[in-house]
């Protein structure tokens, strides 16, 4: 009788421990570092997540823009913070790309930061211009074997890697033409100078709806709601060329497991309310819902894939 009571007590203590600990976090203001300047997609989404978390936790989540070096400066600041989860990083696909192309980073992207929660993901679409008629991806590949096909690249970015991933899956070579921003590439596409550009839905949608460019493939496992008639890359004949862009939260490595769980749960809650889904969809993105392990695995897989492509195509960041 006595022992069963103590067992019960023990069991209830064990059950109670983790929620109690988790409720302790956050008992003071949390900082969310956005490694890009105001106005970037990271900034818009980061501020949105910070706002949601502070309402959910009833604790202020302060946003700090620490731009520079393609996000490395802000990430390094979080890497060097106390490993207590009170300093978070709001990064994006650029995280794995930088890690793949930059040789000297001010932190170790594999060891110093822990991926905790993917907040949103976005789809990329391949669009073709009118320099030569390219009605679908098969035609792009057929012509690329005999002549130069120019694609719009944005340095070491998801756009460039999406194009190189497609080229490597299709087994052809596409010529990179670099631009500072996607909109400049779109102008050359519309002006009949550039042939193909793999961009975010936001960048390509106006021109696709005007019928001034042709959408040839969605680089996702599923079609996009914005353009339901455009096939996925797999449907267009190139399975394996899928890549999404994403935005997510990282913390300093070594933060307690219950803190990580609390942040993961918090982010997943914040981005999946009906209002949040409406907001995110207006930004042409989708809310994500991943466990810590799934997100960590995504980051690792991408890192390996981009490293391979970067070496093969000699894409460097410094």
């Amino acid at each position: 009788m006595k022992s069963s009571l103590s067992k019960l007590l023990l069991a209830s203590m064990v059950l109670a421990t983790s929620p109690v600990l988790a409720q302790q976090y956050p008992n003071k203001p949390v900082t969310l570092i956005i490694p890009f300047s105001a106005g970037a997609s990271n900034d818009i989404f980061g501020r949105f997540v910070a706002d949601g978390l502070s309402k959910l936790w009833k604790q202020s989540v302060l946003v700090e823009n620490r731009a520079g070096a393609g996000g490395a400066i802000g990430a390094a600041a979080v890497a060097k913070a106390r490993p207590d989860g009170y300093t978070m990083l709001f990064s994006s696909s650029s995280y794995t790309i930088n890690a793949a192309v930059q040789k000297s980073m001010p932190f170790d992207p594999l060891k110093d930061l822990k991926p905790v929660a993917m907040a949103m993901r976005g789809q990329m679409i391949g669009v073709t211009g009118s320099r030569i008629p390219l009605p679908d991806l098969k035609e792009v590949v057929r012509l690329a074997k005999t002549q130069k096909i120019f694609y719009g690249a944005l340095g070491a970015s998801s756009t460039t890697f999406a194009a190189e991933l497609f080229a490597s899956v299709a087994g052809v070579k596409l010529e990179a033409v670099n631009y500072k921003g996607g909109n400049e590439a779109m102008i050359d596409l519309l002006g009949g100078r550039l042939d193909i550009y793999f961009g975010t839905v936001t960048t390509v949608l106006p021109a696709v709806l005007n019928k001034s460019v042709t959408a040839v493939g969605v680089m996702s496992p599923t079609r996009t709601t914005a353009l339901p008639n455009v096939p996925t890359v797999a449907e267009a004949g190139f399975p394996g060329a899928e890549t999404d862009i994403w935005w997510g939260v990282f913390v300093t490595s070594g933060a307690p497991a219950d803190v990580l769980a609390k942040i993961n749960e918090g982010v997943n809650t914040v981005v999946n309310t009906p209002e949040a889904v409406a907001f995110i969809e207006k930004q042409a993105a989708l809310p994500a819902k991943m466990s810590i392990d799934e997100f960590s695995k995504t980051v690792l897989t991408e890192l390996g894939r981009w490293k391979e492509l970067a070496e093969k195509n000699n894409i460097t960041g410094d």
Binding site: G39, L190, P206, N210
Partner: peptide, 11 residues
Amino acid sequence: LGIPGSPTMAL
């Protein structure tokens, strides 16, 4: 055109 000429226009 839906193509902004500057970051401010993009916003």
